[in-house]
Write a protein that binds this DNA or RNA. Structure first.
Lengths: 272, 272
DNA sequence: CAGTGGTCTAGACCACTGG
DNA sequence: CAGTGGTCTAGACCACTGC
């Protein structure tokens, strides 16, 4: 089969179907690029299936040949779509086994988004972190929290406070805010009883997969309460890490304010 | 043409031709993976040409078809090699124009490795940074500097100290160490007279291209001298950014210790 | 208009995994 | 051994750039 360059995906029969529209959408803003390659469209369809929950966290998605048949394109085109999703860490390829939905619940990478590492060796050296949930409150979004989560000020949010300790030393103090809707039913008890990364719990219990995040880092001095939580004297400089985490579709789903003690750890970053 | 799966690229006779050698190298250590795809070998050859200076910073490399002919492989294979180099920011593709050697001297991204951004807007808002070179001294590597640069303690290194100011406010104080050999002839005067990113000067004057880097970030308190340089009161928390920058072949070529004032700026990082 | 990178296909074969 | 992802080829055509 050989499609004209401007063709789009055809409606597959049954439920796996998408629609065909030729060329750019009508009534497009002038100057709009208005051209998306086939593999990008396939990528969009795969993304939809991920978002809709058709494929569960950690499970295998259909093989490349199956998807090629479903979407009526060549394997190479599906491949290129999957390649990009794998680069973005939404999918994980395993040769000989299949392609899997990425998850935060894997033994391999305990803390995918945590860039803090001990001065000597890696995070797993001191064993798993000791997590202490301080509280989990339902309250109204401040203007700042609302802006981050793109909701309205005053909307219901859940606030979680916790401390992480490594080798017995309290090292991270975190406040996090979640939109109340998607996380209805989350309690401090549930958080305490779950053994694993918090994002893994979000996947399993609420079907929310954190896919990417953005962090703003500063050096700050803690206030009195914070000094108490981390058991450090006043005047100890700390890393302030403000994280906004997104699920599919660039939807922000968590705002997190962390304070990191960096005398035995550092925040590691790779530049390219 | 259809190569056996295990074929490799040979030493080119003349200068453009590749030959065929079958199978993994003999007498290989047991358990060695011992298989590298053709496109990885091509990638290695391209890397060699980059390293040897065959193609200059910012210049176009030969077209995909030319390279395919030179290496006697298909365009697709060259393409995959270039794709990876483009992802690693060693090459830049421009549709319709060609593929170019990445450089730090482009107007587009003034500071490729600087992740500090103003609270409102981007770095270019306040215009270019005001650079002040404090000094450039030749001295002997301390144990710590030697470890970073993988040279011997006592070897000659150049130390540069400078301050960067944004909108007139001193914001970054940096100490950096360079191996004296590759940077022979670098002086404070040369640094002061150059208008552009320091890494661009390194490219143009010394043929050293910084390709990737690793940063370790902490929160610290400045000492008295540092307070003076940045014009901040004692007790002001600062970001300590220790950078190790590499050129080709994972060779470290610069160790840099930065102190960032983060009351009007923050260190921005993207997580995937 | 020629030359570049970008997309898409079809088919062959290789490497890896598990039953 | 069958099934999966991974590599490689050859050829066609498209989108973009500049002369």
């Amino acid at each position: 089969m050989h499609m004209a360059r401007t063709s789009s995906i055809d409606a597959p029969p049954g439920q796996t179907v998408a629609d065909l529209s030729v060329g750019p959408a009508l009534a497009m803003a002038p100057g709009t690029p208005a051209f998306s390659p086939l593999y990008q469209q396939i990528k969009g369809l795969i993304l939809q299936s991920l978002q809709s929950g058709e494929w569960k966290s950690g499970a295998a998605i259909p093989s490349e040949l199956e998807l090629a048949a479903r979407y009526r394109v060549s394997q190479g085109t599906v491949r290129k779509a999957i390649d990009e999703l794998a680069v973005e860490n939404l999918l994980v390829r395993r040769q000989g086994k299949g392609t899997f939905v990425a998850t935060h619940a894997e033994q391999q990478v305990q803390y995918r988004f945590l860039k803090l590492v001990p001065d000597s060796g890696d995070l797993n050296r001191d064993g798993p972190a000791q997590r202490t949930i301080i509280d989990c409150k339902r309250l109204r979004a401040s203007a700042e929290v609302a802006r981050g989560l793109t909701i309205r000020a005053g909307d219901a949010v859940l606030q979680v406070r916790r401390v992480l300790a490594f080798a017995g030393i309290p090292t991270i103090l975190e406040d996090l805010w979640l939109p109340a809707g998607p996380f209805k039913g989350l309690t401090a008890e549930r958080l305490r009883s779950y053994d694993g990364p918090m994002y893994a719990l979000f996947e399993a219990e609420f079907g929310v997969r954190m896919v990417r995040a953005q962090e703003k880092i500063r050096a700050v001095l803690p206030d009195e309460a914070q000094c108490g939580m981390l058991a450090v004297p006043a005047g100890t400089p700390l890393l302030s890490v403000e994280r906004l985490a997104y699920t599919y579709n660039d939807t922000p789903m968590e705002l997190r304010q962390g304070l990191y003690l960096t005398d035995k750890h550092f925040y590691r970053n790779e530049l390219h």
